[in-house]
Design a binder for these strands. Structure first.
Length: 354
DNA sequence: TAGTTGGCAGCAATGGGGTG
DNA sequence: CACCCCATTGCTGCCAACTA
């Protein structure tokens, strides 16, 4: 037996309260110009008085549309994706859409379950940064408008699978040029070769930048596997330090992203190295935390807000049936802070033994 | 003719009644 | 008893028709 006291207040209640038909209430709620101003005021006052809340579920049922957009993120603990989610949410809400946020923990299986759940909830479209190892058919066969962000789907550019991301290669080239300009000739790239497009593009850009500076990339940069996390960066940096021969240690550590650099920074400090003096450290993304790192981190600004806005705009265009370019690549810029000095800048001062 | 209204459609779950 | 079919429920949006 349903509890009548808990019954939802509907437009029929508003209509009764205002002394009009439910059709008129519906017109008022949707901002129709057909309604007399005095009637509109009466309906709005009645709705306010009895505590009416618009039922989007019923509206979606009637109109066969949805205002929910699935926002599927691989790692919400990474502040980059948290900032991206905020930017996307702002862009969506400005157009009357609400994100349904899902975290995949970088698992394609979990991602598959979440995508099914999003469809069950009637999402109008999907914005996704795919989990590592996502089979292309998981995205292509979804049957919903979709936009990929940051990580390319593992296929050639496809108008049905638009991609929005930063110019990773160009950003990494800027890092290479900056470090080379400071005198660094031995770099360690902490980001490995997991097959993620972002890592591949950033490493390629780094190598291209070193080559453009006249160095042999195969000698100037070593590549080390690192999970895209603080602990991944920490472990990778420790391994590099442990494996380096006397006098052979890289003078600059290049994090695949900012949180890898944060993790590496912790490892370097624990070994008694002074970041910015004994050793250089860079990140990528320019999350808010980089400015407050000790010392503040040199990184590449990927314009997270612009990425979120561009991705949201692309998806809403797709939902509206408009064509969008298969790729939207946003420019990056280098942000120089205190985490990089010339190699050996602090050599005259003793290094605390580890 | 501007403003308002009643009837019905839309989807999926649920429950009741009929059949083998 | 299992199964199937159909009516009902929930709430809003659309549209033709009505009224002043």
């Amino acid at each position: 037996m349903p509890d009548r006291s808990q019954r939802r207040i509907t437009i029929l209640d508003v209509a009764r309260e205002a002394g009009v038909s439910k059709s008129t209430v519906s017109l008022v709620l949707r901002g129709s110009s057909l309604v007399n101003a005095e009637t509109r005021d009466r309906v709005e006052a009645a709705a306010e008085r009895i505590g009416y809340v618009y039922n989007r579920g019923a509206a979606a049922l009637r109109s066969a549309t949805s205002s929910f957009v699935a926002l599927v993120i691989p790692d919400l603990v990474n502040p980059f994706f948290a900032q991206l989610a905020v930017a996307v949410e702002e862009a969506l809400s400005a157009r009357g859409f609400v994100p349904l946020l899902a975290n995949t923990n970088d698992s394609p299986n979990r991602q598959r379950d979440l995508m099914r759940s999003m469809r069950e909830h009637g999402a109008a479209g999907v914005m996704i940064s795919p989990a590592q190892g996502t089979p292309p058919e998981d995205l292509a066969g979804l049957g919903l408008p979709i936009v990929t962000m940051m990580r390319r789907p593992a296929s050639a550019p496809d108008p049905a699978l638009p991609y929005v991301g930063p110019d990773n290669a160009d950003g990494a080239r800027r890092i290479a040029a900056h470090l080379h300009g400071l005198g660094h000739r031995r770099l360690a790239f902490l980001g490995g070769t997991t097959g993620m497009s972002t890592q591949h593009e950033r490493l390629s850009g780094l190598r291209a930048g070193l080559a453009a500076a006249g160095l042999d990339p195969d000698r100037a940069v070593t590549v080390h596997d690192a999970l895209p996390s603080r602990s991944g960066g920490h472990a990778a940096a420790l391994e590099v330090l442990a494996a380096a021969r006397e006098g052979d240690r890289p003078t600059a550590f290049v994090g695949y992203n900012d949180i890898v650099a944060f993790g590496a920074g912790g490892a370097l400090r624990a070994q008694g190295l002074r970041i910015g003096r004994d050793i250089a450290l860079t990140g990528f993304d320019n999350v808010a935390e980089t400015a407050h790192h000790a010392p503040p981190l040199t990184t590449v600004d990927v314009r997270i807000d612009d990425l979120g806005r561009a991705a949201a705009a692309a998806l809403l265009a797709r939902i509206g049936g408009e064509a969008v370019p298969p790729e939207t690549i946003l420019p990056t810029r280098l942000v120089v802070r205190e985490s990089c000095g010339a190699p050996g800048a602090g050599a005259t001062e003793p290094v605390r033994p580890s």
